[in-house]
Computed example of a mutant assay.
Amino acid sequence: MRFSRNATGTLFVGGAMALTLAALAYPGMLGLDKVSSSPDRIIADTQWGPLTEQDRDFVVKVRAAGLWEYPVGQIGLQKGSSKAVITASQHLIDGHAALDTTCRKIAPMLNITLPNVASPQQVGFVNQLKSESGKQFDTDFANILRMTHGSIFNTVAKIRSTTKNSLVRALADQANDTVLDHITVMEKTGLVDFDQTLFQQTTPPKLPDSDLTPPPPAAGQPEVVLTPPPTATSTPVDINGIAGGNGAPGSGANPNPNPSAG
Rank of each mutant, 00 (worst) to 15 (best):
G80V: 10
S82W: 00
N111R: 13
P205R: 05
Y26Q: 11
I43Q: 11
M17I: 07
K34W: 10
S260H: 06
E53S: 04
Q136Y: 02
L207H: 02
A23F: 14
D209M: 11
V117I: 11
G220C: 13
P71R: 01
Q54G: 06
D211T: 05
T231A: 15
S260W: 00
V225W: 15
S131I: 12
A175V: 07
S89H: 00
I242M: 13
R5L: 09
I152S: 13
I112S: 08
A232V: 04
S260K: 03
N111W: 04
I242Y: 09
D193G: 12
I42N: 06
I112K: 00
I112H: 01
V85D: 03
A88T: 02
R41N: 11
D40L: 12
G66E: 06
Q78G: 03
A261L: 05
A84N: 11
H91R: 04
D173A: 09
I152E: 13
P50S: 09
F137V: 15
M1L: 01
S166G: 10
Q47N: 07
K135P: 07
P259G: 15
L30A: 15
A142V: 02
N6Y: 12
L110E: 07
V126G: 05
D193K: 10
V225F: 14
A261P: 10
D94H: 03
L51N: 07
L99W: 08
A25N: 09
G245T: 10
D100A: 08
A98V: 14
S119W: 01
M109F: 01
L226W: 00
H149K: 15
K34A: 14
L51E: 01
Q201K: 15
P108D: 12
D238M: 08
E53T: 01
S81C: 12
L51K: 12
G150P: 00
S161Q: 13
I106L: 13
S234Q: 09
H91C: 03
A25W: 07
F58T: 10
T202R: 14
Q196V: 13
A175L: 02
Q128A: 14
D100L: 02
T101M: 11
Y26W: 14
A253C: 07
A65W: 10
F194P: 08
D45G: 12
N258Q: 12
A84T: 09
H149E: 15
G252H: 07
E132N: 09
P222V: 06
M29D: 15
R146G: 08
L191F: 00
G73T: 08
L191T: 08
R5Y: 04
R56M: 15
A218P: 02
P230T: 00
T46N: 10
L167F: 09
L32C: 12
A243C: 06
P255K: 02
A23M: 13
V156M: 04
G252C: 04
V185N: 14
V123C: 11
T113H: 05
N240W: 01
G244V: 08
P214H: 02
T155P: 06
Q74C: 08
T178A: 14
V62K: 11
D195M: 13
D100M: 04
P236A: 08
L198P: 10
S260C: 03
A44V: 03
V168H: 02
G220Q: 09
T163C: 05
D45P: 06
G262L: 01
G134S: 15
L114H: 10
S131C: 08
Q78M: 04
